[in-house]
Amino acid sequence: MTAHVRFRVNGESHEVDVPEQRLLIDTIRYEVGLTGTKLGCGVGVCGACTVLLDGKMVSTCIMLTAHAEGADILTIEGLAKDGELAPIQKGFLKYGGFQCGICTPGQILAAHALLEYNPHPTEDEIKDWMMGNLCRCTGYYKIIESIEKTAAGEV
């Protein structure tokens, strides 16, 4: 059966007809065409597929597309405005918060959500929040530093 689903992605309205079992990550990548959202573990653990759904971060690899009906979705492609990177993106660039880059869209969206929720997190609060975004290049110190410096306005 087909689900007719309406949502906004990065401010732009979309209407899609997808099989009812279609996961949100596949709809974002292959119907909307935004491939910055990455498939990592596929079981909601690694955070590579993170997007913000109505401002809250979710795992799109374990969410039905139909459960995004009416939602406002922010993907990594929507963070920069008018060609200018968001502060958290500048922070990750300036302080080297990534290595291979596959986890980076999820890391940045998670960090962005953290700073929206808590603009001046402590190191422990950063670790607690970012715990669900795995980096297998072992870049955690740089990720924490990128977030701390962004929060301090040093980007």
Binding site: G44, V45, G47, T50, L53, K56, M57, V58, S59, M63, A110, A113, W129, M131, G132
Partner: peptide, 9 residues
């Protein structure tokens, strides 16, 4: 429980 992403849903 788990992580913020899971707890949001």
């Amino acid at each position: 429980v788990a992580t913020v992403r899971i707890r949001n849903v």
